Structure formats: C-alpha cells, structure tokens
Amino acid sequence: MRKIKAIHKAVYSPIDDLETFRAIPTQSIDYLDPFLFLNHHGPQFYRKNNNGLPFGPHPHRGFETLTYVIKGDITHQDSGGGESVIKEGGIQWMTAGSGLIHSEVSSQEFKDNGGEVEVIQLWLNLAAKHKMVKPNYVGLPFGDICHFDLDNGKVNVDLISGNWGENKGPRDSLSNLTMTSIRLKADGILDLEINKKDEILFYLANGELVVNGTEIQKHQLVQFENDDTKISIKANKDSYLILGYGEPFNEPMVAQGSFVMNTQQEIMDSYADFRSGKMGTWK
C-alpha cells in the first residue's frame, strides 16, 4: 500500500460572511506540486435577498482554476468572453494562462430566493511552457461530466479529466491531470492504482473514510509518499471525496496575489500587464 506521509486538517478561514475551510496552503503544507490551493466553502444556508458569493472581478495568470459546485450555483464571467451559470453537481474549469479578469458570484435567482451553498475551489499550476497560453473557460453542468459506478453502485465517480479504465473525462488537461469527485455510500469500497510518480490531491469534504487502514475525517487532506501504487478506501459514512493526480513539474515557483509564475520578474511583469489592460477590461 502507498504510505500516508501526513494528514493535514483544513483551517477555518472565513471570507466576508462565507464560511471557508482552507486545506492548501496552511502552516503544515504549502502546496502539492502541481496542486496549489484548495478552499472549501460551506455548506452554508443563505436567506432570501442575500449578497451571495463574494468573488467579484479579480485577475489571474499562470495557472488554472477548477471549481466544484456541490450545492447552490455560481455565475461565471470573464474578460475573455466566458460566461455561464453552473448549478449543483457541475464544475467550472478556467485556464488563466497569459491572464484575464473573472468573477464567480451567485446568480440573481439565488440572491433573491436564498438556499444552501457548498463550493470547492482549486488552483492547478501550469508548467512553464504553458504559463502564457491563451485563456480559456469551460463550464460543465452535471450532465456533461462522465459518471460511472463501482462496487455495485456504492461508489459514484464523477470524471472531469483524464482516463479511468474505458472512461474518459470531458475536459482535456494541459498538465495531463486526472481530476474527479467521488461520492461513496456507507460501506462502499474503492481500490485505486496510481502511478508512483504522480502527486495525489486527496481531500475529504464530507463523511468518514478508512484509507490504507487509517481513519480520515472530513476537512482532512491526505498527503501520500511516492512508494507504491495501491490505495484502499472504505467509507464508514456517506462521503464526498476530491481526488486528483498527475506528475509534478519540479519547477521554480513564485506566487504573489493572484499570479503564479516561475520568477519574481514574471510576477512584476504580470502586475504591469494587468494595470495596463493586457488582461482585458471589466465592463
């Protein structure tokens, strides 16, 4: 079995009135190359006539964002023309690349009527050769994601990118990442084989699992060694798992604000390009 190197507990870090648990980065872990950032928002109930999610217009460069809409909805808009409303079960995948401005807020319907929100937001690094690719946005509703069942229906896999047996995710990853969400019913069993070279993102959003004999609780991030391929999972309760994996870049990284590049000079250039309007303008 692949050894567990460490178990990191997400820290409570609210944003305005939005309940947030940050799993990466924390005092115990900076990042898992190429996984840079993970915020778990909610679950939280909003009353009628609320302000919704607080992620108004802001720039990005040098990485990708992947957002899981577990409950509620998100309205995406960006300076490259991308726009959509994604509801429960869907995802948003944005390649910031050379830079753009985007916002992720609640729909007017949600702000008017209220409801429950739960969202997971990831930052996925880009290799140096892809840092300045043309920005791109794809919003996928639940029905456009690849879904399949294991263990007689006790394990439901939502495959977003990469291949799993004969199944292929609808999103092509520039970094060859396999990205999923996995819903396990109590007593569901999942056995994985992942290349030794791959770094693994393993975050339990809800529920309780036993992973290679170790009990894992919600809001915990599991960090693995690169010593074996096999991972054995059993669900003690109904659980929701974020699982991703791919080869690390092993490249220099400089992160500042909402830019992630390879050198400090590239960060300075990013701020200059944003101020000069090279990442687009917001209307």
Rank of each mutant, 00 (worst) to 15 (best):
P135G: 12
D151Y: 10
M132T: 11
N125E: 01
W123V: 03
N152Q: 12
F148C: 12
D149P: 00
G165N: 13
Y137I: 03
L150C: 08
I160W: 02
D158E: 11
I120R: 00
S161F: 05
P141S: 12
K131V: 13
V157A: 01
K134T: 15
N167Q: 15
G153H: 11
L140P: 05
W164A: 15
P170Q: 07
G153P: 11
N156V: 02
K168W: 00
K134H: 00
G153M: 12
K154C: 01
H147Y: 09
V138R: 14
L126W: 02
G169R: 02
V133T: 08
W123T: 03
H130T: 10
G139K: 04
N125P: 02
A128I: 00
H130W: 02
F148Q: 04
G139V: 06
F148N: 10
I120N: 04
K134C: 07
D151W: 06
G139D: 08
F148D: 06
M132F: 10
H130A: 12
D151R: 05
D144T: 12
N152I: 04
P170C: 09
H147L: 11
L126N: 08
S161N: 02
P135D: 09
C146V: 07
W123Q: 10
D149F: 12
G139C: 08
K168I: 10
N136K: 14
L159K: 03
V138N: 07
N163L: 06
K154N: 14
V157Q: 02
N156R: 12
N163K: 13
D144G: 07
L140H: 05
F148S: 09
K154R: 13
P135C: 11
L140W: 00
I160T: 03
D149W: 07
V157G: 06
G169D: 03
W123F: 01
F142E: 09
K134Y: 01
H147P: 01
H130M: 13
N125S: 11
S161D: 02
W123I: 03
I145D: 07
N156W: 00
L140N: 05
G153W: 05
Q121G: 08
S161H: 06
S161W: 05
H147E: 06
L159S: 06
